[in-house]
Computed example of a mutant assay.
Amino acid sequence: MEDKQYDYDMESGDAFFEELEQDIVEKGYFKTHVQLTKSATMIQIHFHTEGTVGLTCDRSLEPFEEPFISDEKIILKYGDRNEELTDEIEIINRNTPRINIARYIFEFIALSLPFKKIHPSLRTEDDKNGLTEDEDEVVLVYSSQSDDETDEDEPEEKIDPRWEALKKLKGE
């Protein structure tokens, strides 16, 4: 390959996910635009993928289609060995004749899926913790009084007479 930019468009479906040995996605359809920029020291690959995958709801176990969009980039630097430096940067052998980008496409699809797989009809319900998306702010209340000061100012709590009698038996 010459040192220049190459553009590729590809699309795939269920056969792509069946070919890979994984349990995350079984069905789906997507289109990917790959922009590969080759230079003397590295290859930069930009992936733009859009599509839908078939998932199973974690709550109702009903199948549903989840749309996704992924826009990721990976840099392959030439070196003496194959090594993954970071999530975005890898070293490949200078004599590598072919690069299989299927694993990158799958990883980016898998990373774009939601952690909780909830059917769209159930997404309006509150989560088990009672917070909706708008309520995930935390309110911090600050008081300048120490715990010792608050105990003195507050009247002693009234204790149920039944518990008071039990305390006497216990010797308190």
Rank of each mutant, 00 (worst) to 15 (best):
N95M: 15
P97H: 04
R98K: 09
R98T: 13
R98N: 12
R98S: 12
I99H: 03
N100K: 08
N100S: 11
N100T: 08
N100H: 11
N100F: 11
I101F: 05
I101R: 01
A102S: 13
A102T: 06
R103Q: 10
R103P: 14
Y104G: 07
Y104E: 10
I105V: 09
I105A: 01
F106D: 02
F106H: 06
E107C: 03
E107W: 00
F108L: 10
F108T: 05
F108S: 05
F108Y: 13
I109F: 04
A110F: 07
L111T: 15
L111M: 15
L113M: 15
L113R: 07
P114R: 02
P114W: 02
F115K: 06
K116E: 15
K116S: 15
K117N: 12
I118D: 04
I118C: 09
I118M: 07
H119R: 07
H119C: 09
H119E: 05
H119A: 09
P120D: 03
P120H: 02
P120N: 02
S121I: 09
S121H: 06
L122G: 03
L122C: 03
R123L: 04
R123N: 06
E125H: 03
E125R: 00
E125N: 04
D126E: 07
D126M: 01
D126A: 02
D127G: 09
D127E: 07
D127A: 05
K128H: 13
K128Q: 14
N129Q: 07
G130C: 01
G130Y: 01
L131W: 01
T132I: 01
E133T: 01
E133Y: 00
D134F: 00
E135I: 00
E135H: 01
D136E: 09
D136Q: 08
D136V: 05
E137H: 11
V138G: 13
V138K: 07
V138W: 10
V139K: 05
V139D: 11
V139S: 10
L140P: 08
L140K: 12
V141N: 14
V141M: 12
V141L: 13
V141F: 13
Y142F: 12
Y142N: 11
Y142S: 12
Y142M: 07
S143Y: 14
S143M: 12
S143Q: 13
S144R: 14
S144Q: 14
S144E: 14
Q145H: 14
S146K: 04
S146W: 06
S146P: 05
D147K: 00
D147N: 03
D147Y: 03
D147H: 01
D147L: 06
D148L: 03
D148N: 08
E149K: 06
E149Q: 11
E149V: 06
E149H: 07
E149Y: 07
E149I: 05
T150F: 10
T150M: 11
T150R: 09
D151P: 06
D151C: 12
D151H: 14
E152T: 12
E152N: 14
D153K: 10
D153I: 10
